[in-house]
Amino acid sequence: MAKLTFTDAEQQTLHTERFEHPHPRVQQRMEALWLISQGLVYSDAARLSGVSEATVDRYVALYRHGGLDGLRRLHWGKSSVSELVGHKDSLEESFRQNPPQTVAEARQRIQDETGITRGPTQVRAFLKRLSA
């Protein structure tokens, strides 16, 4: 694997943002990469920044693919907005007219009316939000 090289400007940014970036996860990433920029090996950078070597490897991959902006980006998985939100009004009306007796029945009606399949836990959470 090619050795990482950092410009003086990148080193300065890593140094500054490891303390000043508003998100602690980004601070941790900057800390690990700053330590590497100072000549430490991954294992030492991991130990000093409080993460595993595998995590340092992921941070390095983020940097290699996206530079400093890649380290700043946070990807927390799927959107927190449910696909069912777009069907909330029609489902609420349907359930008010003919309340489901079980979660399994509600699940099947959601699938029939929207084409969206959800598990029992997700259906329970959706029904709870409807009743709130």
Rank of each mutant, 00 (worst) to 15 (best):
M1W: 13
M1E: 13
A2N: 15
A2F: 15
A2K: 15
K3H: 14
L4Y: 05
F6A: 02
T7P: 02
A9E: 12
E10L: 02
Q11F: 01
Q12S: 14
Q12H: 09
Q12T: 08
T13N: 12
L14I: 02
E17A: 07
E17W: 14
E17L: 10
E17T: 02
R18H: 04
R18L: 03
P22F: 07
P22R: 02
P24T: 11
Q27H: 10
Q28D: 09
Q28R: 11
R29C: 02
M30N: 05
E31G: 12
E31I: 03
L33P: 03
L33V: 01
L33S: 00
L33R: 06
W34L: 05
L35P: 05
L35M: 02
L35C: 06
I36E: 02
I36H: 00
S37R: 05
Q38V: 04
Q38S: 13
Y42T: 12
S43L: 10
L48F: 12
S49Y: 08
S49F: 07
S49W: 01
G50T: 13
V51D: 03
V51Q: 07
S52C: 09
A54C: 10
T55G: 00
T55K: 04
V56K: 00
V56C: 04
Y63F: 10
G66S: 07
G66H: 03
D69S: 15
D69M: 11
G70C: 06
G70F: 08
G70K: 04
L74K: 14
L74T: 15
H75C: 12
W76I: 11
W76H: 14
G77Q: 06
S79P: 09
V81C: 07
L84D: 00
L84E: 03
L84T: 01
V85G: 04
G86Q: 08
G86E: 04
H87P: 02
H87M: 08
K88C: 06
S90N: 10
S90Y: 09
L91S: 04
L91R: 02
L91G: 00
E92L: 12
F95W: 01
F95E: 00
F95T: 04
R96V: 12
R96L: 12
R96T: 15
N98M: 10
P99K: 02
P100L: 01
P100C: 00
Q101M: 10
Q101Y: 09
T102L: 03
V103I: 02
V103R: 01
E105S: 08
A106C: 06
R107K: 05
Q108Y: 09
R109Y: 01
R109W: 00
I110S: 02
Q111C: 13
D112L: 08
D112P: 03
D112K: 04
T114C: 05
I116R: 01
I116Q: 05
I116S: 06
G119C: 07
P120Q: 15
V123P: 00
V123D: 03
V123I: 07
R124W: 03
R124T: 08
A125V: 13
A132N: 10
A132S: 14
